[in-house]
Design a protein around this nucleic acid. Structure first.
Lengths: 190, 190
DNA sequence: TGAATAAACTAATAACATTAGCTCAGGCTG
DNA sequence: CAGCCTGAGCTAATGTTATTAGTTTATTCA
């Protein structure tokens, strides 16, 4: 038999990501991953530490990917246009990768590296807000508000939390406009 | 042995709620509940259909309770004061019952009764917005925005998503003020 | 008092995570 | 070039969980 499977840590993470995205975090089992890869469950232990660790790896990769996309969306833009672009990309990512988005939004207590990685998606927002005339505290309030609103919206949307009667795109535009406006008026106020 | 345990469906749900709140949804197992109640796991099946169903029951009860509290907070208030009171209660509930809040925010596809129950916490917000001069569509956008922002904030807070440097209470006040302001200005604009 | 019922139990099955120890193929060393 | 070492698969086994089947027992009610 020449064609042994030749797994790698990467291929295991990739298979796990696909499962998470297609069927949600709770569908991720090592048995399932092994089946997907044509291998027996114990073989996976040559490449990953265990289920927990695999989940963490998937979450880490998703978070990096998400951050990269937000950064790319912000690039070359400032002010309201930048905010709108980042917001749109935020929502697009959550829509395209519901499982990975959900996973990346989960906390992992006692994991310093993960905590650091979780800050990366926020950086583009911080950068955009530098263009506004906010003092340091205000700026942090604004970042938290933006993040909360975007996260809340895409979470609710992805779990089907909105009724079907009114266009969700329009609601999202309304939300983003409200945030932009709040920022403007806060800046103006002083 | 006179002192048989005498479980009831309610006591099982209560024990489950306590576990969910103390240690999160993933800590809820029937074995765990049984141990807590001084009983063997199969005995629970006399009172609940299974783990899935128990989770649903806990979520349903949490959602009802949450809705009641939001309704009570709104009572006797209108306009910005009502919004602030509901927002405060929203956050207080999520803080006091992190596991139950998280569970109640999860979707359950193909569950009509649950979908209906999930609408109840939104009702106080809808009622408050009737005091604003919004057309029907605008009003739905506003409800979605408010809900998203509140849900996003408390979710992020409960998973420790905010750094520790700046006061989170202040950020929450900022968020609520922004929302109130956006509503006012939208109403004024027409 | 005796039968019916409810609610506990024990025993058993199946899915999963994880560990231990075995085997084989390919590359490296002498 | 031969033998060994290592990496990566495997089988077997253990422990935890959910769940079902079938049994027992206590309480209630006629």
């Amino acid at each position: 038999m020449t064609g042994r499977k030749r797994l790698t840590a990467q291929s295991v993470v990739d298979a796990a990501s696909a499962i998470v995205d297609a069927e949600g975090t709770s569908a991720l089992t090592l048995s399932r991953v092994a089946r997907e890869l044509g291998v027996k469950p114990p073989s996976l232990y040559n490449h990953v530490i265990g289920l927990d660790s695999l989940l963490r790896d998937v979450a880490l990769m998703a978070t990096e990917d998400f951050a990269d996309r937000l950064g790319a969306a912000a690039m070359g833009r400032t002010g309201p246009a930048a905010l709108r672009a980042v917001a749109a990309e935020f929502r697009a990512y959550a829509k395209a990768h519901p499982g990975l988005y959900e996973l990346s939004a989960q906390a992992r207590p006692h994991d310093e590296e993960y905590a650091r990685a979780s800050m990366r998606p926020v950086e583009p927002v911080i950068a955009i807000l530098r263009g506004y005339d906010l003092d340091e505290k205000e700026s942090i309030h604004a970042v938290r508000t933006l993040r909360a609103a975007l996260h809340g919206f895409v979470s609710l949307e992805s779990i089907g939390g909105f009724g079907l009667d009114v266009d969700v795109d329009e609601s999202f535009a309304w939300l983003v406009a409200s945030l932009v406006e709040a920022l403007e008026s806060d800046t103006t106020r002083g």
